[in-house]
Design a protein around this nucleic acid. Structure first.
Lengths: 216, 216
DNA sequence: AATCTTCGCTTATCACTGATAAGGAAAGCT
DNA sequence: AGCTTTCCTTATCAGTGATAAGCGAAGATT
């Protein structure tokens, strides 16, 4: 009855985990093709080749599956941010490259980005955010804040500055990316110009010229 | 048969338009209470006191109703932006107040804001934006751009600057507002501080000190 | 070897969703 | 009065996420 410490008494690992993986991949592919809202559990099950209720052996419900994909998306973004080492750069250059990583992630993987930051549950009563997504988001933000702080540490003086900067910067980048994703048909200005201009504006505000103190 | 010019031959205005209004108001109230995704057409019909199919005499479908509310939200934002007259202000002060109007609108009327900018249709195949919402959004953006350009005209030099500034600014403000709305549980820094800091950063980038040219 | 247990799956079914069909009743116009 | 139009009803549809009940084969136990 009591399992031996460190070794489960039984080894039920058949092809369960692989199936689970299969489902996640199929779901992500379908979501990318048709949008999260348009894909039903039957679509996913059909793509995998199993019946619809079979999904519920691997995930508690549809939202649970979405949450899992969301966590993966966060993880991918963390990896990209962590991969940036900018030792031989000026703060400004490092800052710009860091922002680019975020933006590129959103544009290259719009569905992953949507999962992570724009996901609203289908039938949730008054928008209570899934705690797992919240936790994953927090972890990613901490990564964001920490990386950012190291990159521009020489330009930060006041205490609490890092967190404030990280939140404002995140918001700004998210605005750009999310509007692009949600309002694709809008007559946007040239994307490169827009990015460059926006980041320059931020950087100009951040890295004040020497001898000039920001007003207010 | 042929209606007299300027006077319709029949006057079918029974209580149709009022009903329509009633439905829109009930829907908006329900959406505010429970979130857009959680409210069904039966909920709306029940709140008005009619049967569910009766809705379809006034709106082609659920999305049509949402679109109508979306247009209203845009209209409301336009009104707020147009109401700002900042003749006796510096460019910087006018800029800050203008941004505040946008932010306040989003925070005070989160559902209207969501309708306007964050609405993703329930079953749309690959996210084609409703042309009506697109049109309404365009109109609002033109208002945004025009008002902004007048406020800070003295600080704009290059051609095309206004449009670029408007789009980047909009994106930045949207990022702040939409993240607040979508991730309420996130441990945000003090909201006032965050707003002030963010707008200052933008303004610092925008309104360079005299005699100092922005780098790059 | 025979049995038992567990796991991943099936079919059948649920309540609910948005949407349509068909028809009824009342108001307004000719 | 008769006709049309408008707004509403009930009945019903296919499709949704989710659950219940049971089946069958693999692995463990006897």
């Amino acid at each position: 009855m009591i399992p031996v410490e460190g070794r489960s008494t039984r080894k039920p690992r058949g092809r369960g985990p692989e199936r689970r993986e299969e489902i996640l991949n199929a779901a992500l592919r379908l979501f990318s093709q048709s949008g999260v809202m348009a894909v039903s559990t039957r679509d996913i099950a059909g793509a995998v080749g199993i019946s619809q209720p079979a999904l519920y052996a691997h995930f508690r419900n549809r939202d649970d599956l979405l949450t899992e994909l969301s966590e993966r998306a966060f993880s991918e973004l963390e990896q990209r941010m962590s991969a940036l080492s900018a030792d031989a750069m000026t703060d400004r250059a490092a800052f710009l490259r860091f922002c680019r990583i975020y933006i590129d992630f959103g544009l290259e993987q719009p569905d992953a980005y949507r999962m992570a930051f724009m996901l609203e549950k289908r039938r949730s009563r008054f928008e209570t955010l899934d705690p797992r997504i919240l936790a994953a988001g927090l972890k990613t933000f901490q990564c964001f804040e920490e990386r950012l702080a190291r990159l521009v540490s020489r330009s930060l003086t006041r205490p609490g500055e890092a967190r404030l900067l990280a939140q404002t910067l995140w918001a700004g980048l998210h605005g750009l990316v999310s509007l692009w994703l949600a309002r694709r048909e809008f007559p946007w200005a040239d994307r490169e110009t827009l990015i460059t201009r926006y980041l320059d504006m931020l950087a100009d505000g951040l890295f004040q010229p020497e001898g000039v103190t920001p007003r207010r």
